[in-house]
């Protein structure tokens, strides 16, 4: 179910501009890894290289290797479409398909690539995914209503349900709570704690308390200056990063001395 990610020597570019430089790290399966760092340090760009979403931006280009267990996502002949089925993603702003019902939103991924799924089977997956996203109780009586009619927090959990419905190995989350109120945020954080039993989770967050609350390991990214590429400063156990980091810059950032 959950796979390990091994990144080595990864750089990403927007045209001629280098956005992140030479990043290597390991992400453990069935755990939550948080990426923190100041704006523009490339943590979101790096996250998007892990499911080959970076290259859909015009001019987006990647060098280096990302191994999912033993398979290089950037190897020759690897289809980015199948990579994205294996590595799911949840975005900063909840983005359910506005013209689809709640049910259709969750089922959207399963109906892709010409896959024919029996109705009873689809019903089961939709229920399981919504339960997995802690949303089933709230929506089970209105599955045919538009997904866009839910509250922001519910929409984000709907997006999580949609992402886990296709049974990915890894779930990437790009600041999933930054558009949500504190109560919805708490609901998502609880959910992340449950989901890590089944998936490898990587979360980008601007909220350091959130990183401390939900993650097992934390990676700190920084950039040397404006226009410079972002770098990985260090990655370690979350408890250690927040109490006794090995790099001074991390401690400065955590304690609010810059950034």
């Amino acid at each position: 179910m959950a796979k390990r990610i091994d990144v080595s020597g990864l750089s990403a570019f927007y045209g001629a501009h280098k956005a992140i430089d030479d990043i290597s790290m390991t992400v453990e399966p069935r755990s939550v890894t948080a990426f923190i760092g100041p704006s523009g340090c490339g943590k979101s760009t790096f996250l998007r290289t892990l499911n080959r979403m970076h290259e859909v931006t015009p001019g987006g280009r990647v060098e280096g290797k990302v191994l999912l267990d033993d398979e290089n996502l950037y190897g020759p002949g690897v289809d980015p479409v199948s990579v994205r089925r294996t590595v799911g993603m949840v975005f900063q702003r909840p983005n359910p398909f506005p013209t689809m019902s709640i049910y259709e939103n969750v089922a959207a991924g399963l109906r892709l690539n010409g896959t024919r799924v029996r109705k009873s089977e689809l019903d089961a997956v939709v229920e399981k995914s919504l339960q997995g996203a802690n949303l089933w109780k709230e929506v089970k009586d209105r599955l045919d209503k538009p997904g866009a009619g839910l509250s922001g927090g519910q929409q984000q959990r709907l997006c999580i349900a949609r992402a886990i419905a296709v049974e990915p190995q890894v779930l990437l989350m790009d600041e999933p709570c930054s558009a949500l109120d504190p109560i919805s945020t708490l609901a998502i954080e609880d959910l992340i704690g449950e989901l890590k039993e089944r998936f490898t989770i990587v979360i980008v967050t601007h909220n350091m308390q959130q990183a401390a609350r939900v993650s097992d390991r934390t990676a700190f990214f920084n950039l040397a200056g404006v226009g410079q590429p972002g770098r990985l400063v260090e990655i370690d156990e979350t408890a250690r990063i927040f109490s006794n980091p090995s790099v001074q810059a991390t401690e400065d950032y955590i304690s609010g001395r810059f950034g």
Binding site: M53, R84, F91, P98, T99, G109, L112, V166
Partner: peptide
């Protein structure tokens, strides 16, 4: 057509045509 809905489709493993079918055509209908 909102970029965020195209990305939602892409991240589910949609091909280019499926991105159009899921996010662009319903929006533009």
């Amino acid at each position: 057509a909102p970029r965020m809905h195209e990305e939602a489709a892409l991240a589910l493993g949609a091909t280019r045509w499926e991105v159009i079918r899921l996010s662009v055509l319903p929006f533009g209908r």
